[in-house]
């Protein structure tokens, strides 16, 4: 479970996050939706510590992430996996080495154990057999999968995905969505996905946070989203469909 308490973030005096308080539950696919530029990525970066909130707190299962000592912070970070919008695979390393990276850095596994774990993770994302390829040699959809495999290499508790479907065709998008849902349920992790793809929301979403101008304008269950009674959210959903 991850909880945000009145998280604010300003850049040069401009407040981008204007007091977000919300909860993301364990074992669920939590979706963060909202239009471009309203602060989804900034919120995610504040949650994982790539940006420091100007004020407010982020709790990882009651650990106050914003005020941890360095050693505890690193502990929490090893429980975090993140899929970046541009995948951010290490391009000097092969697929296998990308997935193996965190295992090398943080575990005392033997080479054979690491290889097994890498193959297990690659199988999870249906990418067995591409171990020796480099990121530049595989397609965008394959990169996303490898990115997911890298994110789950350690036994993570929290998975963050910033627009996992951007730049993918609809079929591949659905496969990635299903994969994220399956991983979330199988390993009982807290998954948080930034998206503006309403198909993703209805296919795999459990809980939804709608970000509007730096505030969480609406929080709730996916099934209630069409009858939210919130004007901004209704407009956002309407704009996503042709009917």
């Amino acid at each position: 479970m991850i909880e945000l308490k009145d998280v604010r973030k300003s850049f040069d005096g401009v407040e981008v996050l204007r007091g977000i308080s919300t909860r993301f539950e364990t074992g669920k696919v939590n979706l963060v939706i909202g239009s471009s530029g309203h602060g989804k990525s900034v919120m995610m970066k504040c949650m994982v510590g790539l940006l420091n909130p100007t004020s407010g707190n982020v709790f990882y299962d009651d650990r106050d992430f914003t005020n941890l000592e360095y050693s505890q912070l690193r502990q929490v970070r090893q429980e975090i996996g993140m899929l970046f919008q541009g995948t951010a695979l290490f391009d000097s390393l092969s697929v296998e080495e990308n997935v193996e990276f965190a295992l090398k850095m943080f575990t005392n596994m033997t080479k054979a154990e690491r290889r097994d774990r890498v193959n297990f993770c690659l199988e999870q994302v249906d990418m067995a057999g591409v171990n020796a390829k480099f990121p530049a040699e595989i397609s965008g959809g394959m990169k996303k999968r490898v990115g997911i495999a890298r994110a789950i290499a350690l036994d993570i508790k929290y998975l963050f995905c910033d627009e996992p479907n951007s730049g993918l065709d609809p079929v591949t998008s659905r496969l990635i969505d299903e994969l994220l849902k399956q991983i979330t349920e199988e390993f009982n992790i807290t998954t948080i996905i930034n998206t503006h793809d309403m198909k993703t929301v209805f296919d795999i979403g459990d809980d939804v946070v709608f970000i509007y101008k730096g505030t969480n304008e609406w929080d709730g269950k996916v099934k209630d989203i069409k009858n939210s009674g919130n004007e901004m959210l209704t407009n956002f959903i309407k704009a996503s469909f042709f009917d």
């Binding site: 502990q75 970070r77 850095m105 963050f160």
Partner: peptide, 12 residues
């Protein structure tokens, strides 16, 4: 390309 961010998120 956010690879440094990826390192940081891992706790490196």
């Amino acid at each position: 390309s956010e690879q440094i961010d990826a390192l940081e998120v891992m706790g490196i």
